[in-house]
């Protein structure tokens, strides 16, 4: 097959949906709603995350949903705020009613300082939610054994972290992501910690199926321009992966022929 054809047919399938864009985005931390909508449009992202909160009776809430739905984005509600499996299942059931989707980004992080996911509660919740018919995308540490357990539990994808949420530190878990990607038979979406387009490109070059970016876009000086930069990086990284990267070597390998023709002419 020609490479151009291969590129055109390169679609990501998760659960019952297929995606052309491999950049998933979050809706949090933007300064204002218009910037958020413009940035998400510029990212060409087809899957965007949302959260749920208990309504403050005194507040009037912004209608964040209408512009997202209008732009054809699929919504991925998260269970942020859940501290254990029981709370996460409750949050997922609420999110299903609020957003009319059975997709859920399962995240259980009891510790607010590092927001690291609880593997035991996440696995428990994943089993319960998959049994209830949810399309489950769990946010987890880059733990290859846990990712295989989540796969067996019926998750539609796994979302291992590169670094703590919002830290912008990049891919600190590369060695373990490599193992997860090698072993997975479901899509691997690298989530959390990707702070720059080069981090996203690296994840894609490593063979990740997609990345999820929120903070790095939302807090950028120009979120719309940054969003475009991430989109290009994800495309470049994916193309490099499909093209097949050259291997690494500890010694130099000459790019020009090292013949002795200069000596011969002296």
């Amino acid at each position: 097959m020609l490479f151009e054809e291969m590129k055109q047919q390169d679609q990501l399938i998760i659960g019952d949906k297929s995606f052309t864009s491999r950049l998933f985005t979050g809706t949090g931390k933007f300064n204002d709603q218009q910037t958020m909508v413009d940035a998400l449009k510029a990212s060409k992202s087809e899957l965007v995350t949302m959260a749920l909160k208990r309504v403050d009776m005194a507040d009037r809430d912004d209608d964040i949903l209408a512009p997202l739905i209008k732009n054809g984005m699929n919504l991925l509600p998260n269970t942020s705020g859940a501290r254990n499996a029981k709370e996460a299942v409750f949050a997922a059931e609420l999110a299903r009613e609020a957003l009319q989707t059975n997709w859920v980004k399962l995240e259980i992080h009891p510790d607010p300082k590092y927001l690291l996911p609880d593997p035991i509660e996440t696995l428990k919740a994943a089993e319960m939610l998959a049994n209830k018919g949810f399309i489950v995308l769990p946010y987890v540490h880059a733990d290859p054994v846990l990712c295989k357990h989540l796969e067996s539990a019926g998750c539609a994808a796994v979302m291992p972290l590169g670094a703590p949420i919002g830290s912008n530190k990049g891919i600190k878990t590369a060695e373990f992501l490599d193992i997860i990607i090698e072993q997975a038979t479901i899509p691997v979406v690298v989530d959390a910690g990707l702070g720059s387009p080069s981090h996203a490109a690296l994840a894609m070059e490593m063979g990740a199926d997609a990345v999820l970016v929120n903070t790095a876009i939302a807090v950028a000086g120009n979120p719309v321009a940054m969003s475009e930069a991430f989109a290009k990086a994800v495309q470049a990284g994916r193309q490099a992966y499909l093209a097949g990267l050259g291997g690494q070597s500890t010694q130099a390998v000459a790019s020009s022929p090292l013949t002795a023709f200069l000596e011969a002419s002296l």
């Binding site: 979050g26 809706t27 949090g28 931390k29 933007f30 958020m36 995350t49 949302m50 959260a51 749920l52 909160k53 208990r54 309504v55 009776m57 809430d61 964040i64 949903l65 919504l75 509600p77 998260n78 942020s80 409750f90 059931e93 609420l94 999110a95 009613e97 609020a98 957003l99 009319q100 949420i165 919002g166 999820l212 929120n214 903070t215």
Partner: peptide, 30 residues
């Protein structure tokens, strides 16, 4: 009372005296 009520039941489900209602709303998040 901590039981999620499906949207399709909203018009049939009548509130009772003493019910504990929890309201949630979709918001921006990562």
């Amino acid at each position: 009372n901590m039981q999620v009520i499906s949207r399709s039941e909203w018009t049939q489900y009548n509130i009772n005296e003493g019910d504990n209602i929890s309201l949630f709303q979709a918001i921006a998040g990562g």
